[in-house]
Design a protein around this nucleic acid. Structure first.
Lengths: 153, 153
DNA sequence: CTGTCTGCAAACTTTTTGCATATAG
DNA sequence: CTATATGCAAAAAGTTTGCAGACAG
């Protein structure tokens, strides 16, 4: 129960995939659309696990398999179409590609987006109690950056 | 091949555990000492997975079981004696309890501590290439903070 | 057409659990 | 003593893989 023009938007999706050497398949479209639909239902950005995406996407595409969901989520994340959030429990993916932080509640475990301009102080004003924070930077360490590329061994 | 005074230090360890309602067992001491030994060997802070800790600790305490290691690591982390780092692959723990960030190399996957005063610019000067960063804040969301405590249901 | 992608089911890795026993306090 | 912690082994949870066939480009 949720598809926009099914023409312009889908073309854009196909383009983005092609730009990363990925083919536009019905499975990937179904998987990606789960995030759009969830956002519409939740009002806010959803953070979905592979299993949740699988269950939802299967509604539109019953023959979809888990392996395909895992593959597609990894590919979409690598292509920059989805964001990947590591944490306790399964990995979660979100469609919010813009720079943002995440806040996880110790009790309900719910994950919420935090815009970059709202840090701990602002959060506290909104009723969040920040107990710990963790920053993970990723890229190339000096050793690997010095090596031309992981060609030979 | 690595134990300090085996008296004062151990007492401190027992005290810290007791302060969190945990008993001082030989297993927990062996598990915790793995980090101290690793730090001495590596010169820098080690980020160990449960399996690595298990293998190392078993040298001192052969009858140690995996389940105990998983339990102990979780308890020590919750008690604030160890830090927990989530990411791809297994969870990793470190003995660096002070506030710090982590940097993971995309190629070698190695994890390094990053002091708070050295952010992306400083890292770049040191030869690191930061490609992405992720911040995870944890605590209580407005809803759970409002509820007195998760008593009834 | 051709090479990528998919489905299936099984393997693999990582973590948790149940229960009888051992042990710290 | 008594409740907590442990060991064992099995299961649950989460993710990856191999291979034959389907489909996008």
């Amino acid at each position: 129960m949720a598809s926009h023009s099914t023409t312009t938007a889908d073309l854009g999706f196909a383009q983005m995939l092609r730009a990363h050497g990925l083919r536009a398949t019905a499975q990937r479209r179904a998987i990606y659309s789960v995030f759009a639909d969830a956002a519409r239902a939740d009002a806010s950005n959803a953070h979905l696990s592979a299993e949740e995406v699988f269950q939802q996407a299967r509604v539109q595409l019953p023959e979809l398999s888990r392996a395909t969901v895992y593959n597609a989520l990894g590919e979409l994340a690598e292509a920059g179409l989805l964001g990947l959030v590591e944490g306790p429990g399964p990995r979660r993916f979100d469609a919010n590609v813009s720079a943002h932080h995440h806040f996880r509640c110790r009790i309900c475990q719910e994950l919420q987006d935090v815009e970059l301009d709202s840090v701990e102080v602002t959060l506290r004003e909104r009723g969040f109690q920040v107990e710990s924070s963790h920053v993970m930077l990723e890229g190339l360490c000096p050793g690997c950056a010095a090596r031309p590329s992981p060609a030979g061994a």
